[in-house]
Amino acid sequence: MTSRSEQTRNRIYQAALDEFARYGVAGARVDRIAREAQANKQAIYLYFGDKETLFATVLKRSLGDLAAAVPPPTADGEVDVTDYLDRLFTYHQNHPEVTRLLLWEALEFTDQTVPDEESRRAHYQQKAADLNSVRSAESEQISAIDAPTLLLIFTGLVGWPMAVPQVRRMIVGDDEGALERVKASVIAAAVAIAGQK
């Protein structure tokens, strides 16, 4: 692939990311993506296929970027739960489009298999296993939470304040330190739930 075509693909990707985060699959328009990317529609179809395939590609790359930027906790202590949640929260804070894409996916693929579901399932299972290797079970209540559910709880703790910023604003305020207070509380709650000190 030439450098020029790679630049075109990257412009299309960025324009599609913005479009899908704003409008979802159904509301997104290939014409707008082409215009924003300064590319023609034929290039979009050539490089990415139809609109649904483009959405799947955008979501997969966004989640891949997230996974690369925020590796899960490790048993060797390189990454602990506190560090993981801190970086996960910060990543979502700086990349709100990831949460939006996942919300659109939830709305538009409710009763069907989502794009790339099997590999994403395997990725989440590995993250749950990694998380399980670093948590301690000092009480019966903590040990009763299986690792996949613990991962889901962590994802919810981080994702929900980003998914509903208006609710977050109404509950904790919108002063300069509000989001930092939420972040600190999310980390403290996650550490307590994981049974870490």
Results as ranks from 00 to 15, higher is better:
residue 110 T to D: 07
residue 121 R to P: 06
residue 139 S to K: 12
residue 136 S to N: 05
residue 127 K to G: 00
residue 134 V to W: 01
residue 117 E to G: 00
residue 117 E to L: 06
residue 90 T to V: 11
residue 107 L to R: 15
residue 125 Q to S: 06
residue 101 L to N: 08
residue 116 D to V: 01
residue 138 E to K: 10
residue 114 V to Q: 14
residue 93 Q to L: 15
residue 90 T to C: 03
residue 99 T to N: 03
residue 93 Q to V: 10
residue 129 A to E: 14
residue 119 S to K: 08
residue 103 L to T: 11
residue 120 R to Q: 11
residue 106 A to H: 06
residue 115 P to Q: 06
residue 133 S to C: 02
residue 77 G to K: 07
residue 102 L to F: 09
residue 110 T to W: 03
residue 108 E to V: 11
residue 109 F to S: 07
residue 92 H to D: 04
residue 95 H to Y: 13
residue 133 S to M: 04
residue 135 R to N: 05
residue 139 S to V: 05
residue 107 L to M: 15
residue 100 R to W: 01
residue 99 T to K: 00
residue 105 E to P: 02
residue 99 T to G: 03
residue 114 V to N: 02
residue 99 T to Y: 00
residue 120 R to H: 12
residue 97 E to Q: 13
residue 115 P to T: 02
residue 138 E to M: 06
residue 137 A to F: 07
residue 115 P to D: 06
residue 94 N to R: 14
residue 81 V to I: 15
residue 119 S to L: 09
residue 134 V to E: 01
residue 138 E to W: 10
residue 116 D to F: 15
residue 114 V to L: 10
residue 117 E to V: 01
residue 92 H to M: 11
residue 122 A to Q: 14
residue 91 Y to R: 10
residue 97 E to V: 07
residue 83 D to W: 00
residue 126 Q to G: 02
residue 114 V to Y: 04
residue 106 A to S: 14
residue 141 Q to I: 08
residue 126 Q to T: 14
residue 132 N to T: 04
residue 132 N to P: 02
residue 94 N to A: 12
residue 118 E to M: 12
residue 130 D to E: 07
residue 87 R to C: 02
residue 76 D to E: 09
residue 136 S to I: 00
residue 117 E to Q: 14
residue 113 T to R: 15
residue 82 T to N: 08
residue 141 Q to K: 08
residue 107 L to D: 15
residue 77 G to D: 11
residue 138 E to Y: 10
residue 136 S to G: 04
residue 80 D to E: 08
residue 129 A to S: 12
residue 112 Q to F: 03
residue 122 A to F: 07
residue 113 T to G: 01
residue 83 D to M: 09
residue 95 H to Q: 15
residue 112 Q to G: 04
residue 101 L to V: 00
residue 128 A to D: 09
residue 89 F to C: 03
residue 120 R to V: 05
residue 82 T to I: 09
residue 76 D to K: 06
residue 76 D to Q: 09
residue 131 L to M: 01
residue 79 V to L: 02
residue 83 D to C: 06
residue 95 H to T: 11
residue 126 Q to M: 12
residue 95 H to G: 00
residue 109 F to Q: 04
residue 107 L to Q: 15
residue 88 L to A: 14
residue 133 S to H: 05
residue 90 T to Y: 05
residue 89 F to S: 00
residue 111 D to S: 08
residue 80 D to A: 03
residue 89 F to I: 03
residue 99 T to P: 02
